[in-house]
Amino acid sequence: MSAVVAPARPAPAGPAAVSRRVSAWARRVLRVVVTTATVFLITSFGTYALGALSKTNPAAAVLGETATPADIARMNHQFGLDRPLLTQYASWLGHAFTGDLGTSYFTSIPVSASIRQALPVDLAITGLAALFAVLIGGTAGIAAALNGGGRLDRSVTAVCSVLSTIPGFVVGIVLIVMFSATLRILPAGGYVSLTTDPVQWFRCMLMPSFALSLTLAAHIARQLRTSLVATLRENYIVGATVRGLSRRRVLLRHALRNALGPTLGILAVGVPALLSGSVPTERIFNLPGVALLTLQSSERHDVPVIQGTLLVTVATVLVCNLVLGALLARFTPQARR
């Protein structure tokens, strides 16, 4: 009788293989860091140049119409506006890395202090809007894909087509009329910090976040529905179903994971859209966020505040894209390659 030979186990990875994997990971991280830093430098320079090259003279705006040329020249020297553009940019960026974004020309309040006070409002609106968009769009997209061609699928597609064309501020006005003016169950505007009253904070954030989320939710639902329908027709999904795996396991462990790539791409593009779309939303609901601060500063040509808020917005968008890129690499195997 011949002896039964056990299958050979794969040899453990040696130091050379581990070193190659670590080296490949380090190269990927370095490439991401270099790309992000390059984008940040280009956008930050464009942000500063827009303010520095504008036709409005901040010194003249601060001093008023009675200012003489000598007064304007003295104020320009005090602001450092008589130096070359690259010198101004290098000094501004160097101070920005230490948290010093300059001082408002009109209020003399440090820009960083104004942004620290306003930024939590934008982060709350954007975060809740993204959460609502994922929950609403994800649920609708999965339901439509599982009922492909049916009434639910057609209904979801029709509703998403309508929602994707309605601006967030229009939805906000409708919500104010319904839940504030008519039902009187939610505040029409204002802001309370999370640490002061969490319940009232959520009540103040609920309508603006929901209004801001619907457009992104519609895009997520349509993209997820399209990707999931195509994935469910793949051979490996059919094979998993034939082997007796439950429908829930096939959907969550196999189909949904491979269909998430394009949807995360939509989310990566949608986060900057949420930040930009918060300007009219904050004005309608009277929320003291960075978007409203930027709008008010642009109306009075307060250049340091405009430059500081745009720089913080760019940094926030880059961080969000890095996080979503990491999620994309985590959930979609093809993104790792």
Rank of each mutant, 00 (worst) to 15 (best):
D82S: 02
P280K: 03
W92D: 02
F97I: 15
S276R: 05
A255Y: 01
F331C: 00
S298W: 08
H77W: 00
N235I: 00
L228H: 04
G94M: 01
R74Y: 00
Q223E: 13
A70V: 04
V170H: 00
E282S: 14
L183E: 11
V314R: 08
L322T: 11
I136P: 09
S297A: 15
T139Y: 12
L53A: 13
E65G: 06
I72L: 03
T68G: 06
A315G: 13
S180P: 09
R154N: 14
V242I: 09
A329T: 12
C204G: 14
S276P: 04
A221Y: 09
T309R: 08
N235P: 00
V229M: 00
H77Q: 05
G94D: 05
L152T: 13
I284H: 07
V170D: 07
R249C: 06
F179P: 11
V229L: 06
H95D: 14
V229P: 05
P272W: 07
G148I: 06
R253L: 10
A11S: 09
P187Q: 04
A118N: 05
A291Y: 08
A181E: 10
Q296G: 13
T196C: 04
M75T: 01
G270T: 11
D82F: 04
R243G: 05
S180L: 10
T226E: 00
R31K: 03
A188F: 10
P12H: 04
S180N: 07
Q296M: 11
R222P: 02
V39A: 01
A129H: 08
A259Q: 08
T332D: 15
L101W: 06
I266H: 03
L274Y: 07
E299I: 15
V162H: 02
P120M: 12
N235T: 11
T165P: 03
L101I: 10
G168W: 02
S19T: 15
V32Y: 00
A240D: 05
M1Y: 00
F210E: 00
T87L: 10
N286K: 09
R9H: 07
G270E: 09
L135E: 06
G150W: 13
T263E: 08
L206D: 13
Q223G: 01
A37M: 12
M205Q: 11
L322M: 15
G244I: 12
T195V: 13
T241I: 01
I166L: 14
P120R: 07
G138A: 08
F79Q: 03
L295R: 09
L101M: 10
S278A: 15
T309M: 05
V279D: 08
G51Y: 01
V170T: 04
M75W: 02
E282A: 13
R283S: 14
G244C: 10
L274S: 08
R116N: 15
L264W: 09
W201T: 10
T195W: 10
G289D: 06
S54Q: 11
A61F: 02
V312C: 06
F106C: 01
T182R: 04
T332M: 03
L131W: 14
S298N: 12
